[in-house]
Computed example of a mutant assay.
Amino acid sequence: MKKILLPALGLAFLLGTTTEACAQANLVHGIVAGINLARMAANKKNAPTAASTTAMATYRGQAFPMQRTPADQLPKKGAEQVTEVETQLDRFHTALLADSTSALCTPEQRTAIQTALVGLARAQSRWDLQPYQQEATFYLAEDARRQKAAPTK
């Protein structure tokens, strides 16, 4: 980050001697855009490649992502948390396919998936959690729909 900021600040300082405000503003915007592009490239370069294991699944016409990471591609840091999240999601998926009317999860399982996602976010801050979150959200929404549709006793 320092490597990017120092040249940018130097250029901004030099721009202070320019008399044309419009040209100066355009140059500053160009520098800021360049810094943002450099940041995005650095983040992309350092991001895990687990997204390549994401597949789209469908249920009742609704599509949702299912990200699973092969054991040989698990990150060294956070492997246990990734496995825990994926195990929880597999339980939901199995319940989803087993019966189209009964509940997918218990309150304890809801808590367990939320805890697992938080644990993964803490262990792997650069890991793309969006597919996991979308899949969990799909299952929890389907569970809520089923519970609402279930006859009251």
Rank of each mutant, 00 (worst) to 15 (best):
T111G: 10
A25M: 12
E20M: 10
T49N: 05
L27I: 15
C22R: 15
E20F: 04
A25Y: 09
Y132E: 00
A47V: 10
E80K: 07
V82F: 00
T49A: 04
K45Y: 14
A33I: 02
I31Y: 01
A8R: 01
T19R: 15
L11D: 08
G10I: 06
N46R: 15
A63M: 10
N26R: 13
A123C: 04
G10N: 14
D72M: 04
P7A: 07
V82H: 00
T106I: 02
A63K: 08
T152H: 08
P151W: 14
G30A: 09
K45W: 12
Q147K: 07
M56R: 13
T152V: 10
G119S: 14
N26W: 12
P151Q: 14
A79G: 03
A41E: 15
Q62F: 11
M56D: 08
L15Y: 08
L37H: 15
K148S: 05
A98E: 13
A63R: 09
T53G: 04
A57F: 02
N26C: 10
A41R: 11
T94A: 09
T94K: 13
A121W: 02
A112C: 08
Q67M: 03
I35Y: 03
I31P: 00
Q147P: 00
P65T: 05
A8C: 08
N43Q: 13
W127F: 06
K76H: 12
A21V: 06
T17L: 13
P151G: 07
P70L: 00
I113E: 01
A42G: 05
E84C: 08
Y132L: 03
R122W: 05
Q124F: 09
Q88L: 03
A23K: 09
Q24H: 09
Y132G: 00
A144D: 13
L120I: 03
A8T: 09
A103T: 07
A47L: 06
T152G: 07
R122D: 13
K3P: 01
P107D: 04
Q67Y: 01
R60F: 02
A136E: 01
Q133W: 04
